[in-house]
Design a protein around this nucleic acid. Structure first.
Length: 421
DNA sequence: CGTCCACGTCTAC
DNA sequence: TAGACCTGGACGG
């Protein structure tokens, strides 16, 4: 569940499910967890949640007791305790009956009912963590969604920080400045503004104001009469706002979807998947950034793109043979994972038209290939945009973002490529 | 069976 | 700037 929107949706889930529920007893941790104990026990307490960027805070509030002396005798809590969670790659909250406890529940809060129900922090990979008596992690910046003004200010007033020497796509994952942005959000945000991901961050951000000048401008949409569909009025909207504003609005779109955000296993994942314009989308390119994270983008990667010429594999590929069939897969199998320190998959445009086509096949992820279908004689990329355009009956926020773009250049690109087969 | 990949931090050379 | 930390799903042989 893990970028800003998912964390926030998680806090909404807790507040909704636990409203009016009384919890009791100790907080229990799984055997396998290495996170700290939560030394809290109470005859009757409530749980509420809040979020900030990529953290969720649970507040455990003891209910009033007639006999506070008795309570302190028994070692009961009489003060609230905050527990601050980070979700890692796979954390989320569930509220279930005791016998439906999900696998990988690592911290459990028991309700005072028979049979009882359990609020549990579930985390398959255990990259998540929590801190009893916790506070928001001090090195993390303001929340991109709910502390927008201070978030902007924090970035704009620290542009001289060496952190901004890096490519913009990598800076967007720096939680000191972009608390809540993660790997899918950075792709979606940069894509919408057509910003090459490996452009120096400072060059993109300098000149932006602390104040969002856009915020109070009402007419975000321009209505244009479409000649072809004469009687229909088509709304055309450019992406509104600068990069910092989109770091705020794009995550909020996910929250306003009301689903669970990024969660491929769940039923309601389809809406989120349809919302994605770039991340893991068929026809988009991807590159490993300098931290080994996959950056999804379209068009020019930008001047700071990893050249990867130093990677053992790239050397091998360049030296050994011009055999275009010498793929990463092959190398992986050959070299063995031990001798090659870390695989670096580079998928990029090449110069000649022929190679372009070959490479474009490599670029398509396996998952994509499954989905790759012709719809109405057009590549799926285009049809996806059409689906987005036809969205009906959405929340106002979302509706405003529906009818947003003419078919972008990449569609033309894909179309040409497609026909060249 | 094995390899690769995944929404994120952390800390140790 | 590598790795370490984990589980599990997809896919290949």
């Amino acid at each position: 569940m893990p970028e800003g929107p998912e964390l926030h949706l998680g806090s909404l889930y807790v507040n909704k499910m636990c409203a009016g529920v009384v919890f009791t007893g100790p907080v229990r941790k799984s055997e396998v967890s290495k996170s700290p104990d939560v030394p809290f026990t109470c005859e009757a307490y409530r749980i509420t949640a809040s979020s900030r960027g990529k953290e969720v805070k649970l507040r455990l509030t003891p209910m009033k007791s007639d006999d506070s002396k008795q309570r302190s005798k028994a070692g009961q809590a009489d003060q609230t305790m905050d527990v601050v969670f980070r979700f890692g790659m796979s954390g989320y909250f569930r509220f279930t009956s005791e016998d439906e406890l999900p696998k990988h529940s690592h911290l459990c809060f028991y309700s005072k009912e028979t049979p009882c129900r359990v609020l549990s922090f579930v985390d398959t990979r255990r990259f998540g963590s929590w801190q009893a008596n916790g506070t928001w992690q001090p090195d993390r910046g303001p929340c991109i969604m709910f502390e927008y003004e201070s978030f902007r200010k924090n970035v704009v007033t620290h542009l001289s920080d060496r952190a901004f020497d890096r490519p913009i796509c990598e800076v967007l994952l720096n939680q000191k400045y972009f608390n809540g942005i993660g790997n899918y959000l950075r792709a979606e945000i940069l894509f919408r503004l057509n910003i090459p991901p490996f452009v120096p961050a400072r060059s993109v951000l300098e000149g932006l104001e602390s104040e969002d000048l856009c915020e109070n401008e009402k007419p975000l949409k321009t209505e244009i009469k479409d000649e072809k569909t004469s009687d229909r009025v088509k709304t055309v909207k450019e992406e509104t706002g600068d990069l910092l504003r989109l770091c705020h609005t794009v995550p909020l779109e996910v929250v306003n979807q009301g689903g669970k955000g990024y969660d491929p296993k769940k039923e309601d994942y389809s809406e989120f998947k349809a919302w994605l314009q770039c991340y893991y989308v068929d026809g988009m390119k991807s590159l490993r950034d300098h931290n080994g994270r996959t950056m999804w983008f379209n068009g020019d990667p930008g001047p700071m793109a990893p050249k990867d010429l130093k990677s053992p594999k790239a050397k091998q590929r360049a030296k050994k043979t011009e055999d275009h069939d010498y793929t990463d897969k092959k190398k992986g199998a050959k070299g063995g994972s031990k001798s090659t320190p870390k695989k670096k998959v580079v998928k990029q445009e090449t110069k000649t038209a022929k190679k372009e086509i070959e490479k474009s096949e490599e670029m398509v992820s396996p998952q994509k290939k499954r989905d790759q279908l012709l719809v109405g004689g057009r590549p799926a990329v285009q049809s996806q945009l059409q689906v987005q355009r036809s969205g009906v009956g959405e929340l106002p926020d979302r509706a405003a973002n529906e009818e947003k773009r003419e078919a972008p250049l990449y569609c033309v690109y894909v179309f040409i490529l497609w026909n060249s087969f």
